[in-house]
């Protein structure tokens, strides 16, 4: 199914929660959605037989300097089509509902986004730092991150 058709169906069903389709320069195209509706839209995309996006290829946080974004890349084993879903978050309190009960593959990737960006996934069954030590301060992949001088006495 083409990205435009997916966008039109989603817009028809969810109305204002679906903001726009970013196809220019993006492969696969992104459907930009409002963060609060991510879980509903995710369940619809997974369960609707015309879409059946049963595989979450990749979940990543992005820091566009004025705001954060969470980008989901979805793929359907049945129909062999792919789409991207993106939700923009404010920089001060980035928070978005979790999708780890829709696609269990999301859990570790959400923890990574939390660890490296500080994006909080509400309702996640396990949200802790995953790659960095638990007492690390700061979120390294943010654009304004300053490298610490010492960690436990060893120079960073």
């Amino acid at each position: 199914m083409e990205a435009q058709a997916i966008f039109d169906t989603l817009k028809g069903k969810f109305g204002d929660a679906v903001v726009e389709l970013k196809g220019e320069g993006c492969t696969p195209a992104f459907v930009v959605v409002v963060p609060a509706s991510v879980k509903e839209i995710a369940m619809f995309l997974r369960d609707d037989p015309a879409f059946s996006f049963d595989s979450l290829m990749c979940l990543s946080g992005v820091d566009y300097k004025e705001k954060f974004a969470v980008a989901y890349h979805l793929h359907s084993m049945k129909h062999r089509h792919a789409i991207g879903v993106k939700a923009f978050l404010p920089r001060e309190t980035p928070s978005i509902p979790t999708v780890d009960d829709v696609w269990p593959a999301a859990n570790f990737q959400e923890r990574e986004a939390f660890d490296l960006f500080g994006i909080v996934f509400e309702g996640s069954k396990d949200l802790r730092r995953i790659l960095l030590p638990p007492d690390w301060e700061g979120h390294p992949l943010r654009k304004d991150y300053k490298y610490p001088d010492f960690y436990h006495g060893i120079k960073v």
Partner: peptide, 11 residues
């Protein structure tokens, strides 16, 4: 890199 020890002789 922010999390690599710059040489194991620091430890």
């Amino acid at each position: 890199s922010y999390c690599v020890v710059k040489g194991v002789d620091l430890v």
